[in-house]
């Protein structure tokens, strides 16, 4: 279940361009994502073509998630937890900051998890999923508790 170790050099020839393409698209959706914070109606009233913007966001997400999953297998919890860690650290709703922060925090958490999963001195390597879950689950619990508090106000 998920591993960073099995990607060959020739596979990187496909993976790197796909990821770069996905990232470029996600940077171009920053403006739309910001204006969609207030909801679809406001976004529309400020001149956003909501359908096009959605398409852009879905496309970049699909390319990024799809290409990584194709080469590294399914790795859980990173996608859901990291953006929230970014929000928590930077206390902003601006995607100009949130998207790069997700990029960096995502890489850091992923590499740390990979190190933990193959600690020196152990014969076997842990599945990387079990390590990312250790990071992801507390974050998800925190989000649930926070939202419950928020809606009761």
């Amino acid at each position: 279940m998920g591993s960073l170790g099995s990607v060959t050099k020739s596979q990187l020839n496909v993976l790197i361009p796909s990821v770069i393409f996905g990232l470029v698209l996600s940077f171009f959706s920053i403006k739309s994502l910001d204006v969609m914070l207030l909801g679809e109606q406001y976004a529309k009233s400020m001149g956003l073509r909501v359908r096009n913007a959605r398409f852009l966001v879905f496309t970049s997400t699909s390319i990024l998630a799809g290409s990584i999953t194709a080469f590294c297998g399914p790795i859980g919890f990173i996608g859901i937890a990291v953006p929230h860690i970014g929000r928590l650290l930077f206390k902003t709703a601006r995607h100009k900051i949130l998207i790069p922060s997700s990029l960096l925090i995502g890489s850091i958490v992923m590499l740390l998890s990979d190190i933990v999963s193959q600690m020196p001195g152990y014969e076997s390597t842990l599945p990387i999923n079990s390590v990312t879950a250790l990071v992801g689950i507390p974050v998800i619990i925190w989000i649930i508790l926070k939202n419950r508090k928020f809606s009761s106000v």
Binding site: L38, Y42, L48, R87, T92, A93, F150
Partner: peptide
């Protein structure tokens, strides 16, 4: 509207969209 972590300035900046 209830958006977390959104500052007044950022809300207004959206109007320049």
């Amino acid at each position: 509207i209830r958006v977390q972590n959104l500052r007044v300035w950022e809300l207004l900046a959206m109007g320049r969209y």
